[in-house]
Simulated scan of single mutants.
Amino acid sequence: MLLGRAAIYFDEVARRGGLRRAAEMLHIAPSAIDRQIIQLEEDLGTKLFERTSTGMRMTAAGELLVDGVRRWRRDLERIRSEVDNLVGLRRGHVSIGLVEGATDIVASAIACFQEKYPAIQYSMEVMGSQSVIDRVMSHDTDVGVTFNPPDERALRVEKTMFHRLGIILRPDHPLASVTEVSLAQCAEFPLIVPDETISIRKVVDEAWARSIGGVLRPVAEVSSIGLIKSLAARGVGLGLLTVINALKEIEAGELTFIPLSDERIDLFGLSVISASGRALPLPASLMIQMLARELDHWDYTSPTGHPFFLQVESDPPSGRQSSLP
Protein backbone atom coordinates (compact mmCIF):
# COMPACT_ATOMS: atom_id res chain seq x y z
CA MET A 1 0.00 0.00 0.00
CA LEU A 2 2.78 2.47 0.92
CA LEU A 3 4.45 1.99 -2.45
CA GLY A 4 1.38 3.06 -4.42
CA ARG A 5 -1.12 5.84 -4.90
CA ALA A 6 -1.87 6.09 -1.18
CA ALA A 7 1.67 7.34 -0.45
CA ILE A 8 1.47 9.97 -3.18
CA TYR A 9 -1.98 11.13 -2.05
CA PHE A 10 -0.88 11.21 1.58
CA ASP A 11 2.21 13.29 0.73
CA GLU A 12 0.21 15.79 -1.30
CA VAL A 13 -2.37 16.29 1.46
CA ALA A 14 0.47 16.79 3.94
CA ARG A 15 2.01 19.45 1.67
CA ARG A 16 -1.25 21.27 0.91
CA GLY A 17 -2.98 20.92 4.26
CA GLY A 18 -6.31 19.85 2.84
CA LEU A 19 -8.10 17.33 0.62
CA ARG A 20 -9.49 19.87 -1.81
CA ARG A 21 -6.17 21.62 -2.39
CA ALA A 22 -4.43 18.28 -2.89
CA ALA A 23 -7.17 17.17 -5.29
CA GLU A 24 -6.67 20.31 -7.38
CA MET A 25 -2.93 19.59 -7.68
CA LEU A 26 -3.48 15.91 -8.53
CA HIS A 27 -6.52 16.53 -10.77
CA ILE A 28 -8.64 13.89 -9.07
CA ALA A 29 -11.72 13.91 -6.83
CA PRO A 30 -11.22 14.70 -3.11
CA SER A 31 -13.25 11.63 -2.22
CA ALA A 32 -10.76 9.37 -4.03
CA ILE A 33 -7.90 10.83 -1.98
CA ASP A 34 -9.89 10.52 1.23
CA ARG A 35 -10.62 6.81 0.58
CA GLN A 36 -6.94 6.06 0.05
CA ILE A 37 -5.92 7.87 3.25
CA ILE A 38 -8.63 6.13 5.29
CA GLN A 39 -7.44 2.77 3.97
CA LEU A 40 -3.85 3.72 4.79
CA GLU A 41 -4.86 4.65 8.34
CA GLU A 42 -6.65 1.31 8.71
CA ASP A 43 -3.62 -0.60 7.45
CA LEU A 44 -1.34 1.20 9.93
CA GLY A 45 -3.85 1.12 12.78
CA THR A 46 -3.51 4.82 13.59
CA LYS A 47 -4.75 8.23 12.50
CA LEU A 48 -2.45 10.17 10.19
CA PHE A 49 -4.44 13.41 10.11
CA GLU A 50 -6.68 15.40 12.38
CA ARG A 51 -9.60 16.61 10.28
CA THR A 52 -10.55 20.18 11.21
CA SER A 53 -12.87 22.81 9.79
CA THR A 54 -9.88 24.53 8.16
CA GLY A 55 -8.13 21.49 6.70
CA MET A 56 -6.03 18.45 7.56
CA ARG A 57 -3.33 18.58 10.24
CA MET A 58 -0.83 15.73 10.56
CA THR A 59 -0.67 13.70 13.75
CA ALA A 60 2.62 12.55 15.27
CA ALA A 61 2.26 9.32 13.29
CA GLY A 62 1.69 11.34 10.14
CA GLU A 63 4.82 13.41 10.73
CA LEU A 64 6.81 10.21 11.10
CA LEU A 65 5.35 8.65 7.97
CA VAL A 66 5.76 11.68 5.73
CA ASP A 67 9.55 11.67 6.13
CA GLY A 68 9.72 8.05 5.01
CA VAL A 69 7.35 8.61 2.10
CA ARG A 70 9.36 11.56 0.82
CA ARG A 71 12.61 9.65 1.09
CA TRP A 72 11.02 6.81 -0.84
CA ARG A 73 9.81 9.18 -3.57
CA ARG A 74 13.24 10.80 -3.89
CA ASP A 75 14.96 7.41 -4.00
CA LEU A 76 12.51 6.16 -6.60
CA GLU A 77 13.16 9.21 -8.80
CA ARG A 78 16.90 8.71 -8.43
CA ILE A 79 16.64 5.03 -9.38
CA ARG A 80 14.50 5.88 -12.40
CA SER A 81 17.08 8.42 -13.52
CA GLU A 82 19.91 5.92 -13.11
CA VAL A 83 18.01 3.36 -15.17
CA ASP A 84 17.45 6.03 -17.83
CA ASN A 85 21.18 6.72 -17.84
CA LEU A 86 21.70 3.21 -19.22
CA VAL A 87 19.73 4.04 -22.34
CA GLY A 88 20.11 7.83 -22.52
CA LEU A 89 18.01 10.71 -21.21
CA ARG A 90 14.68 9.47 -22.50
CA ARG A 91 12.78 10.80 -19.53
CA GLY A 92 13.41 12.45 -16.20
CA HIS A 93 12.43 15.33 -13.99
CA VAL A 94 14.16 18.42 -12.60
CA SER A 95 12.75 20.61 -9.83
CA ILE A 96 13.99 24.20 -9.65
CA GLY A 97 13.37 26.83 -7.00
CA LEU A 98 14.15 30.38 -8.07
CA VAL A 99 13.80 33.99 -7.07
CA GLU A 100 11.70 36.22 -9.31
CA GLY A 101 14.75 38.13 -10.50
CA ALA A 102 16.16 34.96 -12.10
CA THR A 103 13.14 34.05 -14.22
CA ASP A 104 14.62 35.17 -17.56
CA ILE A 105 17.90 33.35 -16.94
CA VAL A 106 16.14 30.13 -15.92
CA ALA A 107 13.71 30.34 -18.85
CA SER A 108 16.62 30.72 -21.28
CA ALA A 109 18.42 27.74 -19.72
CA ILE A 110 15.27 25.60 -19.92
CA ALA A 111 14.81 26.46 -23.60
CA CYS A 112 18.39 25.37 -24.40
CA PHE A 113 18.07 22.25 -22.26
CA GLN A 114 14.81 21.23 -23.92
CA GLU A 115 16.46 21.31 -27.33
CA LYS A 116 18.95 18.67 -26.16
CA TYR A 117 16.61 16.64 -23.93
CA PRO A 118 13.00 17.14 -25.09
CA ALA A 119 11.57 14.40 -22.84
CA ILE A 120 12.69 15.98 -19.54
CA GLN A 121 9.93 17.50 -17.40
CA TYR A 122 10.32 20.41 -15.01
CA SER A 123 8.79 21.71 -11.81
CA MET A 124 9.59 25.37 -11.20
CA GLU A 125 8.50 27.51 -8.29
CA VAL A 126 9.21 31.20 -7.80
CA MET A 127 9.74 32.09 -4.14
CA GLY A 128 11.77 34.23 -1.78
CA SER A 129 15.53 33.84 -1.53
CA GLN A 130 15.49 32.11 1.86
CA SER A 131 12.70 29.76 0.76
CA VAL A 132 14.83 28.63 -2.20
CA ILE A 133 17.69 27.88 0.17
CA ASP A 134 15.44 26.02 2.62
CA ARG A 135 13.88 23.86 -0.12
CA VAL A 136 17.28 22.91 -1.55
CA MET A 137 18.73 22.05 1.87
CA SER A 138 15.69 19.92 2.73
CA HIS A 139 16.07 18.06 -0.61
CA ASP A 140 12.57 19.13 -1.68
CA THR A 141 14.09 20.94 -4.68
CA ASP A 142 16.96 19.69 -6.86
CA VAL A 143 18.42 23.01 -7.93
CA GLY A 144 18.10 26.55 -6.61
CA VAL A 145 18.78 29.95 -8.17
CA THR A 146 18.88 32.56 -5.43
CA PHE A 147 20.53 35.71 -4.11
CA ASN A 148 23.39 35.76 -1.62
CA PRO A 149 23.19 32.20 -0.21
CA PRO A 150 24.86 31.70 3.20
CA ASP A 151 28.15 29.88 3.74
CA GLU A 152 26.63 26.59 4.95
CA ARG A 153 28.27 23.17 4.90
CA ALA A 154 24.96 21.66 3.82
CA LEU A 155 24.82 23.96 0.80
CA ARG A 156 26.93 23.84 -2.34
CA VAL A 157 27.28 27.01 -4.42
CA GLU A 158 27.77 25.82 -7.98
CA LYS A 159 28.17 29.21 -9.66
CA THR A 160 27.84 32.85 -8.62
CA MET A 161 27.53 36.04 -10.64
CA PHE A 162 27.98 39.30 -8.72
CA HIS A 163 26.09 42.38 -9.82
CA ARG A 164 25.13 45.82 -8.59
CA LEU A 165 22.06 47.59 -7.28
CA GLY A 166 20.84 50.48 -9.42
CA ILE A 167 17.86 52.19 -10.97
CA ILE A 168 15.78 51.37 -14.02
CA LEU A 169 14.21 54.28 -15.85
CA ARG A 170 12.90 55.46 -19.20
CA PRO A 171 15.58 56.18 -21.82
CA ASP A 172 14.35 59.82 -22.02
CA HIS A 173 14.65 60.43 -18.25
CA PRO A 174 17.07 63.22 -17.20
CA LEU A 175 19.31 60.68 -15.44
CA ALA A 176 19.43 58.23 -18.34
CA SER A 177 22.67 59.62 -19.82
CA VAL A 178 24.86 59.24 -16.70
CA THR A 179 27.05 56.19 -16.07
CA GLU A 180 26.49 56.07 -12.29
CA VAL A 181 24.10 57.74 -9.89
CA SER A 182 24.03 58.22 -6.12
CA LEU A 183 21.09 57.45 -3.88
CA ALA A 184 21.02 61.14 -2.95
CA GLN A 185 20.42 62.01 -6.60
CA CYS A 186 17.73 59.33 -6.85
CA ALA A 187 15.97 60.71 -3.78
CA GLU A 188 15.11 63.85 -5.77
CA PHE A 189 12.75 61.76 -7.95
CA PRO A 190 9.76 59.47 -7.18
CA LEU A 191 11.03 55.99 -6.30
CA ILE A 192 9.45 52.59 -6.95
CA VAL A 193 10.80 49.89 -4.64
CA PRO A 194 10.16 46.17 -4.11
CA ASP A 195 8.27 45.28 -0.95
CA GLU A 196 9.46 42.91 1.79
CA THR A 197 8.35 39.82 -0.15
CA ILE A 198 11.19 40.37 -2.68
CA SER A 199 14.73 39.57 -1.56
CA ILE A 200 16.26 42.78 -2.88
CA ARG A 201 14.27 44.96 -0.46
CA LYS A 202 16.57 44.21 2.48
CA VAL A 203 19.59 45.48 0.54
CA VAL A 204 17.64 48.56 -0.59
CA ASP A 205 16.75 49.41 3.02
CA GLU A 206 20.33 48.88 4.23
CA ALA A 207 21.71 50.99 1.39
CA TRP A 208 19.25 53.79 2.15
CA ALA A 209 20.07 53.74 5.87
CA ARG A 210 23.83 53.95 5.20
CA SER A 211 23.73 56.59 2.48
CA ILE A 212 20.68 58.75 3.25
CA GLY A 213 19.33 57.84 6.68
CA GLY A 214 15.78 58.24 7.85
CA VAL A 215 12.76 56.42 6.44
CA LEU A 216 12.52 55.45 2.78
CA ARG A 217 9.28 56.93 1.42
CA PRO A 218 8.75 55.66 -2.12
CA VAL A 219 5.91 56.61 -4.41
CA ALA A 220 5.10 52.87 -4.66
CA GLU A 221 6.03 49.62 -2.89
CA VAL A 222 5.44 46.69 -5.20
CA SER A 223 5.39 42.91 -4.74
CA SER A 224 6.21 42.18 -8.40
CA ILE A 225 9.39 42.92 -10.32
CA GLY A 226 7.36 42.90 -13.53
CA LEU A 227 5.10 45.65 -12.19
CA ILE A 228 8.10 47.73 -11.06
CA LYS A 229 9.41 47.57 -14.63
CA SER A 230 6.02 48.51 -16.09
CA LEU A 231 5.68 51.49 -13.77
CA ALA A 232 9.21 52.69 -14.53
CA ALA A 233 8.63 52.32 -18.27
CA ARG A 234 5.55 54.56 -17.94
CA GLY A 235 7.47 57.26 -16.12
CA VAL A 236 5.89 56.79 -12.70
CA GLY A 237 9.30 56.85 -11.05
CA LEU A 238 12.75 55.28 -10.77
CA GLY A 239 12.71 51.55 -10.06
CA LEU A 240 15.31 50.31 -7.57
CA LEU A 241 16.43 46.92 -8.91
CA THR A 242 19.48 45.13 -10.27
CA VAL A 243 20.36 44.93 -13.94
CA ILE A 244 19.57 41.23 -13.98
CA ASN A 245 15.92 42.04 -13.25
CA ALA A 246 15.50 43.98 -16.50
CA LEU A 247 18.04 42.70 -19.04
CA LYS A 248 15.40 41.89 -21.63
CA GLU A 249 13.87 45.37 -21.46
CA ILE A 250 17.31 47.03 -21.44
CA GLU A 251 18.45 45.14 -24.54
CA ALA A 252 15.15 46.03 -26.25
CA GLY A 253 15.73 49.73 -25.51
CA GLU A 254 12.60 49.98 -23.36
CA LEU A 255 14.47 50.75 -20.13
CA THR A 256 17.88 52.02 -19.07
CA PHE A 257 19.84 50.77 -16.06
CA ILE A 258 22.16 53.05 -14.07
CA PRO A 259 24.23 51.44 -11.28
CA LEU A 260 24.42 53.18 -7.91
CA SER A 261 27.77 54.77 -7.12
CA ASP A 262 27.50 54.60 -3.31
CA GLU A 263 30.52 52.60 -2.13
CA ARG A 264 28.85 51.09 0.92
CA ILE A 265 26.10 49.30 -0.99
CA ASP A 266 26.42 45.52 -0.92
CA LEU A 267 26.86 43.56 -4.12
CA PHE A 268 24.29 40.98 -5.14
CA GLY A 269 25.41 37.43 -5.81
CA LEU A 270 23.03 35.42 -7.98
CA SER A 271 23.95 31.79 -7.33
CA VAL A 272 23.09 28.34 -8.62
CA ILE A 273 22.94 26.07 -5.57
CA SER A 274 22.41 22.43 -4.63
CA ALA A 275 22.55 20.38 -1.44
CA SER A 276 26.03 19.22 -0.39
CA GLY A 277 26.50 15.46 -0.38
CA ARG A 278 23.30 14.76 -2.27
CA ALA A 279 23.55 12.47 -5.30
CA LEU A 280 21.41 14.32 -7.81
CA PRO A 281 19.71 12.59 -10.75
CA LEU A 282 21.60 13.08 -13.99
CA PRO A 283 19.05 15.56 -15.46
CA ALA A 284 19.44 17.83 -12.42
CA SER A 285 23.25 17.65 -12.59
CA LEU A 286 23.17 18.57 -16.27
CA MET A 287 20.72 21.38 -15.57
CA ILE A 288 23.18 22.87 -13.07
CA GLN A 289 25.79 22.95 -15.82
CA MET A 290 23.33 24.61 -18.20
CA LEU A 291 22.42 27.27 -15.63
CA ALA A 292 26.10 27.96 -14.96
CA ARG A 293 26.66 28.46 -18.68
CA GLU A 294 23.67 30.77 -18.78
CA LEU A 295 25.15 32.97 -16.06
CA ASP A 296 28.27 33.35 -18.20
CA HIS A 297 26.12 34.25 -21.20
CA TRP A 298 24.34 36.99 -19.26
CA ASP A 299 27.59 38.60 -18.12
CA TYR A 300 26.48 41.96 -19.49
CA THR A 301 28.25 45.30 -20.04
CA SER A 302 26.36 48.52 -20.71
CA PRO A 303 26.52 50.23 -24.12
CA THR A 304 28.93 52.79 -22.53
CA GLY A 305 31.31 49.98 -21.55
CA HIS A 306 30.43 50.09 -17.84
CA PRO A 307 30.32 46.59 -16.32
CA PHE A 308 27.09 45.76 -14.51
CA PHE A 309 28.24 42.26 -13.50
CA LEU A 310 31.48 42.69 -11.60
CA GLN A 311 32.73 39.11 -11.52
CA VAL A 312 31.72 35.51 -12.02
CA GLU A 313 32.95 32.84 -9.62
CA SER A 314 32.63 29.08 -9.39
CA ASP A 315 33.27 26.52 -6.69
CA PRO A 316 36.03 23.99 -7.39
CA PRO A 317 34.91 21.01 -9.50
CA SER A 318 32.43 18.88 -7.62
CA GLY A 319 32.95 15.55 -9.32
CA ARG A 320 29.76 15.86 -11.35
CA GLN A 321 29.84 15.07 -15.03
CA SER A 322 32.16 17.62 -16.56
CA SER A 323 30.19 18.47 -19.65
CA LEU A 324 26.79 18.23 -21.21
CA PRO A 325 26.51 15.12 -23.34
Rank of each mutant, 00 (worst) to 15 (best):
Q130M: 12
S131L: 12
S131C: 05
S131F: 03
I133T: 14
D134I: 07
R135H: 08
R135L: 05
R135C: 02
V136C: 04
V136Q: 06
M137T: 14
H139C: 11
H139G: 11
D140G: 06
D140E: 11
T141M: 14
T141W: 01
T141C: 10
D142F: 01
G144F: 00
G144C: 08
V145Y: 00
V145C: 10
F147D: 02
P150H: 07
D151P: 09
D151N: 14
E152L: 14
R153C: 06
R153T: 10
A154I: 03
A154T: 10
L155S: 08
L155K: 03
L155P: 01
L155I: 06
R156K: 12
R156F: 10
R156D: 07
E158G: 11
E158P: 00
K159D: 08
T160R: 09
T160G: 06
H163Y: 07
H163F: 03
R164K: 15
I167S: 01
I167Y: 01
I167Q: 00
I168E: 00
I168F: 03
L169Q: 02
L169V: 13
L169A: 08
R170I: 09
P171D: 11
P171T: 13
D172W: 08
H173N: 04
H173V: 04
H173L: 03
H173Q: 05
P174N: 05
P174H: 03
P174K: 05
L175W: 01
L175G: 01
L175T: 10
A176S: 15
V178G: 07
V178D: 08
V178K: 10
T179C: 06
T179P: 02
T179E: 13
T179D: 13
T179V: 10
S182T: 15
L183H: 04
L183T: 02
A184D: 12
A184R: 15
A184P: 04
Q185L: 09
C186L: 13
C186A: 15
A187E: 12
A187D: 11
E188F: 02
E188L: 12
F189N: 06
P190D: 06
P190Q: 07
P190K: 11
L191G: 01
L191H: 00
I192H: 00
I192Y: 00
I192G: 00
I192M: 03
I192L: 14
V193W: 00
V193I: 14
P194K: 06
P194R: 02
P194C: 11
E196M: 13
E196F: 05
T197R: 13
T197Y: 08
I198L: 15
I200L: 15
I200S: 05
R201W: 05
K202A: 15
V203P: 00
V204N: 04
V204C: 07
D205Q: 15
D205S: 13
E206I: 12
E206R: 15
A207C: 08
A207K: 13
A207Q: 12
A209E: 15
A209C: 07
R210D: 13
R210E: 10
S211Q: 15
S211D: 12
I212S: 03
G214V: 05
G214P: 06
